[in-house]
Simulated scan of single mutants.
Amino acid sequence: MSNLHTHMQYNDPLTIIARKGDAVDPYVDRTDSLPVINSMITLLEIPSSTDKVVISGFVEIDQHVYEKKQKLAENEFLVHYGMGTIQFHPSQEGRVHLCRYKGRGLIMYPASRIYAMITRNPDVIKTLQDFIEESQRKLDETQLAMERVEEVIQQSIDQTGQARRATDHANQAADEAIEAANRAKDAYQTTRLVYKSPVSDLRELRDTYPFPEIGWTVQTYKDGKRYRYDGNNWIEIDLFGQNLQVVNPYRDGLMSVAEHLKLNEIPLEVQDRVIVFCKESYVFQEVIGVVAPFPFHGEILDVKGFCGVYGETETEIRIEKSRDLINWVDIMESPLEFNALAHVDNKKAKFSNKQVSAGDLFRIQIIKAGLDIQHLTIQLTIRT
């Protein structure tokens, strides 16, 4: 368990949660994926200067080396171990890097020691604690006002309920008289049949008679069904020619035996096949590919993207195709994109080339990796 140190000589102390770094309370391995902002990365914990910070593809330089040359190379970084910050070359601005280190703990500052300048004449400042207390006071006042409003609303509801009950009693007698008249009308409408010209099927029925009246009756000659409009929907009431036999290989029915055999000879050749690209854990600006060639001719039908852990920023992905694993061609007109905080893509991806030949190889190119996005799956559907 980490020790909690506070400087109690202050009313609002600075709090440090620190680990001892021994066998009982060791430093914790940390892996932070963070963006470079203003040439700096602020780690989520204070790193151990003994164990150092490791960033793939970069070299850490010491403070005294930096003081001599006063600048960093593109592949160098400087760690301020007391503050938990890492300084980079300006060319790394906006890029996300994976930082591995051993965490020593945290430094937490009280809200009363974080201030903002309100005006410069004269200099007036407010602390974060001032804003918090002022907000709480406003919330308390709002809560009291809402309680008074709720009392007035409840009184109005009670009065409205009394008036509604009186109106209900007055309307009940009129409703009973109307109900008796409606029952007589319903008895007539449920038995009335007004025959109209037949149509081919139910879809044509709705198009031909868009504003039917109760009792209209229409037959669909494709299947022999008869429909009656009941005031809300077309209801099937009977089937003309129910005694006709269905066709089989030996006897004619609703179609001839020859038509039946010819229909059975038509092959079902269309089939949708799927290529899946997966990346477990964190996703970076990288290439993810499928080594085996796709063995069929076809056409790209759709692409879908999913991620188990969404990214804090946008992600952009392109799909590339090759015949020799050397020359790759981008087949996207617009990329597959994940919006920030989204588990699925935004369905705006378009292809400039959908044709697939047997032997084509595919891969995905991560153009922009969202912050902390993990467990990526891309599903490419090809119709063969």
Rank of each mutant, 00 (worst) to 15 (best):
384 T>Q: 14
19 R>E: 04
39 S>D: 15
159 Q>A: 09
93 E>C: 01
222 K>E: 15
67 E>C: 00
233 N>Y: 13
218 V>G: 04
134 E>T: 00
37 I>N: 10
83 M>Q: 11
166 A>G: 04
15 T>L: 10
244 L>G: 06
163 A>L: 14
16 I>P: 01
272 D>E: 13
123 D>E: 15
183 R>I: 12
162 Q>S: 12
142 T>F: 00
375 H>Y: 15
285 Q>R: 12
39 S>C: 10
141 E>M: 00
136 Q>S: 05
5 H>K: 11
236 E>A: 11
271 Q>P: 02
110 P>S: 06
12 D>P: 00
246 V>R: 09
317 I>S: 03
120 R>W: 03
89 H>K: 00
226 R>Q: 14
58 F>L: 14
271 Q>K: 15
147 E>P: 01
218 V>E: 03
31 T>W: 05
333 E>L: 12
94 G>A: 06
300 I>Q: 07
161 G>A: 11
10 Y>G: 02
70 Q>S: 12
317 I>N: 04
271 Q>I: 14
231 G>S: 08
220 T>D: 00
252 D>M: 07
363 R>V: 04
70 Q>D: 13
201 D>Y: 01
360 D>E: 10
376 L>A: 06
39 S>H: 09
212 P>Y: 00
166 A>R: 08
64 H>D: 15
145 A>W: 01
268 L>P: 04
7 H>I: 09
182 N>E: 14
243 N>K: 10
314 E>K: 11
212 P>G: 02
195 Y>N: 13
274 V>K: 10
380 L>W: 01
95 R>Q: 14
331 I>V: 12
328 W>Y: 01
287 V>Y: 11
26 P>I: 06
81 Y>S: 08
256 S>I: 05
156 S>C: 06
291 V>R: 11
